[in-house]
Design a protein around this nucleic acid. Structure first.
Ligand code: SF4
Ligand code: SF4
Lengths: 134, 134
DNA sequence: CTAAAGTGGACTTGTACGGTCGTATATTAT
DNA sequence: ATAATATACGACCGTACAAGTCCACTTTAG
C-alpha cells in the first residue's frame, strides 16, 4: 500500500483551515474537530507535532488555540508530512530506516532505479505549498 | 506512511531478474528466492499474481518456471504494482475505496488538491517501464 | 478561583503485512 | 508406471502499526 496516514490528512485539513482565517487569528482544536467531524484527541496530537516543528504557534490557556507561524507559501506539503510522521518518509525501507535494516540490500537490484521514483514523489509533495490548497 | 509493500519489492526484483535472462528462458521461483534470499513461499504468491495478470507466463511441472509474457518496454512499474496489490492504488482512501467510505468526504477540503499529487505519483510509476530497471 | 484551552503519556483495538504450512495438480525424466 | 520437480491455492499465524480513546497535568484569560 502507498497511502497517506489519517494523521497527515487531518493535519492538512487543520492547517489549511487555520490558513484560511485572517492572519494571526487563533483557532481552537475543538473548532476544527467539530467543523470536520474528526476525533478531537487525535487532532490535538497532530497539532502538537505541527507546533513542535514550528509550523504553527500554540497559545495555551483560556482563549488559546493555534495560528500559522509562517506565511502559507513557505510551507510545502512535504514539510507537513515529515513533521507529523517524524521519521523521514521514503518509498522503501532502505531509504528511510537505513541500508543495513534490509536483509537483501547487498543483492537488491531495484534500489537504484527506485531512487528516481522516490525523487519524483518527493518533488510532487514539495512543490505544492499550503498556499495552493487554501 | 507511504511505502511500497515487500510483495511489490519482491515482485519487481523477480520480474527484473526474469527480464535479464535471454528472451524465452524459463526461471524457477526457487532460483529467484535463493539468489536474493527472499522467502520462497511469499515470492510464489507474487509470481502467481503476476501470472494471472498476464505479465509473465508460467510453466508447470518439472523443468517449469516463469518467463516474460511481453517485452519489458511494454511493462510500466505501475502495472506491476496494481497486479500485485489488486485494488487500485491511491494516496487517500476516497480515491481507492470510493468517496462514501470516508466519513468526512463531504466536508473534506483537501481531496481536490490531493488529486494533483495523486496524478503526479501515478505518472512517476507509469513512466518507468521494466526496460529501464534491467 | 475557575473555566477553557493546550500538553503528554498510557492504553486499547482492529487490521494489514510479512511470513509459513499443507496439499493438490501438472509435467517431465527415467 | 513412477518418481521427481515444479506451480497453484488456500488456510493459518504473529507482529507491528494505525487509529482512536482516556486521563492527569499545566497554562492563562476573566
Ligand atoms: S534494499 Fe531493495 S528490497 Fe531492501 S528496502 Fe531497499 S529497495 Fe527494498
Ligand atoms: S475525503 Fe478527504 S479525508 Fe477522506 S479520504 Fe479523501 S482526502 Fe482523505
Amino acid at each position: 500500500m502507498i497511502r497517506l496516514s489519517k494523521k497527515v490528512e487531518y493535519g492538512l485539513i487543520a492547517i489549511r483551515h487555520i490558513a484560511t482565517k485572517p492572519a494571526g487569528e487563533i483557532v481552537t482544536a475543538k473548532e476544527i474537530a467539530d467543523t470536520y467531524g474528526i476525533p478531537y484527541e487525535l487532532l490535538s496530537k497532530v497539532l502538537q507535532k505541527l507546533t513542535k516543528s514550528g509550523l504553527i504557534s500554540s497559545h495555551q490557556g483560556m482563549r488559546g488555540g493555534y495560528a500559522l507561524a509562517r506565511p502559507p507559501v513557505e510551507i510545502p506539503v512535504s514539510v507537513i508530512i515529515n513533521a507529523i510522521e517524524g521519521t523521514r518518509q521514503a518509498i522503501v525501507q532502505c531509504m528511510s530506516e537505513g541500508p543495513q535494516t534490509c536483509t537483501v540490500f547487498t543483492v537488491c537490484t531495484i534500489k537504484s532505479p527506485l531512487t528516481k521514483v522516490q525523487a519524483n514523489i518527493e518533488r510532487a509533495f514539495s512543490t505544492m505549498t499550503l498556499s495552493e490548497i487554501v
